[in-house]
């Protein structure tokens, strides 16, 4: 059976440190202002403590990627293992993918005049390594899973604060954060 690689974010372990996002910049040598992974604090209406629970998101490597459908030059490729790769050399910088992805995964690089996004470090995966962000997650909150064999029952596909896009069927899975009992002086 083929694989379907995906990210699993255990929000209960995530400390919002941005290590994953910086590990990505470090390995992929992104331009100074560019990020392929970003960490978004949950609103207080979702997690009642400000900036204490997070969504760490890059590309969700959707089943039916909006970017791929938006791209007029076929710069996006959906691989058999589920990874959505953007080929920068093909990109002509129309930004239609940027408009189309509900998760803000493709970002436009003004200097290089093309879009770019997370490739799940496909070259690392092919060498049997973990993506840089997963390798870089200091608490083990960010993990690589094979969705075809993933059976964790407490994982959700659409946590609050994350757009529900059934047609795209994003592959990322989430474990929701808990809260401590609080005694306030």
């Amino acid at each position: 059976m083929s694989k379907r690689y995906a990210f699993l974010l255990d929000m209960d372990k995530c400390i919002g440190c941005r290590g994953c996002a910086m590990a990505c910049k470090n390995f992929n040598q992104l331009d100074p202002g560019m990020v392929w992974r970003q960490v978004y604090p949950l609103a207080e209406s979702i997690y009642p403590h400000r900036e204490r629970a997070f969504l760490s998101l890059s590309c969700n490597h959707c089943d039916d990627p909006a970017c791929l459908r938006a791209c007029p030059v076929a710069a996006y490729e959906k691989r058999d293992d589920g990874i959505v790769v953007h080929h920068q050399d093909k990109c002509i910088g129309c930004t239609n993918c940027v408009r189309s992805c509900p998760y803000g995964a493709p970002r436009f690089n003004k200097e290089e005049k093309h879009a770019e996004k997370c490739s799940m470090c496909v070259e690392r995966i092919e060498a049997g390594l973990l993506p840089a962000c997963v390798q870089g997650c200091v608490t083990g909150a960010l993990q690589l899973i094979d969705l075809n064999e993933f059976e964790e029952t407490n994982a959700v596909q659409y946590p609050a604060g994350y757009p529900v896009m059934k047609r795209l069927n994003p592959s990322t899975r989430f474990i929701l954060p808990k809260m401590p009992r609080q005694v306030r002086g």
Binding site: A127, G128, L129, Q143, N148
Partner: peptide, 16 residues
């Protein structure tokens, strides 16, 4: 359930 840990990553890396 399948998760990829750092160790299997290293083994795979050697294979790679």
């Amino acid at each position: 359930m399948k998760r990829f840990d750092h160790d299997s990553g290293r083994r795979g890396f050697l294979k790679g």
